[in-house]
Amino acid sequence: MSAMALFGQLLLGLINGSFYAMLSLGLAIVFGLLGIVNAAQGAFYMLGAFFAWMLGQYLGIGYWPSLALAPIGVALFGMLLERTIIRRVYNLDHLYGLLLTLGLFQIIQGLFVYWYGTSGQPYDYPDALAGGHNLGFMFMPNYRAWVVVASLILCFGTWYAIERTRLGSYLRAATENPTLVRAFGINVPLLVTLAFGGGVALAGIAGVLAAPIYQVNPLMGGNILITVFAVVVIGGFGSILGSIVTGLVLGVLEGFSKVFYPEASNMVIFAIMIVVLMLKPQGLFGRER
């Protein structure tokens, strides 16, 4: 085997890992605030890619504006769903929240499969990032380098926003004790909606970033969602930084296994999940709650 292939797969693993990290971050934020696992997260990832593709296809808007517009669209759509539908199950058993968002996921994915089929639409690299560099030990496509850098910045930016800013402190306080935070005059329902929008937007950005690497396919959300669930179980819903690290590491491990034993690469994350559950059921970074 060549070092080129090895590093190529590791890079792809790192990219996948950063998508896992972004999606599980969104899940962790919403879970922390509401105790709900948002199964529609995969649909928002798919929507991000599709919005970008539609902006290009129907309005001729290029990659860079889409990178901002598509996630905003996804966030608005997510906040609309949160305000009108998802809000209604906050007081019920949280399994109902999972089931409800699963229903929403099926509606969104089903509609896009109905409209666009399952064959996938190609989405082009932006011109500025065409080509690549030979680093000696591997060939580095510019676009992939950009995706790694951009998603790392986003992940750690999110971490910074939650752990180090005033708004983030409100968010963390509302996670601990929403009633008390409300008593201080902070509009918690609005905060929840915004946090939901933020979590969903992360999935949307991941979708746009993924669009040129993979095709824009209505089924892309379902495939990644189940893996992200496993990632979340492995990491535990404890810390923001934990979600990021777990996502990245698992993505790289998955890429690594693709080099040595491709047939098993899909199973690696699930195998790790089993081991972690046996040894540390609350997850690597989880707290018992």
Binding site: I85, Y96, G103, L104, F105, I108, L111, V113, Y114
Partner: peptide, 19 residues
């Protein structure tokens, strides 16, 4: 009619009003 969409709608309907 796309089956998953109908299934999703029924899912949501049951959980919102018909638990």
């Amino acid at each position: 009619i796309p089956v998953p969409v109908v299934i999703g709608v029924i899912f949501c309907f049951i959980i919102l009003v018909f638990r």
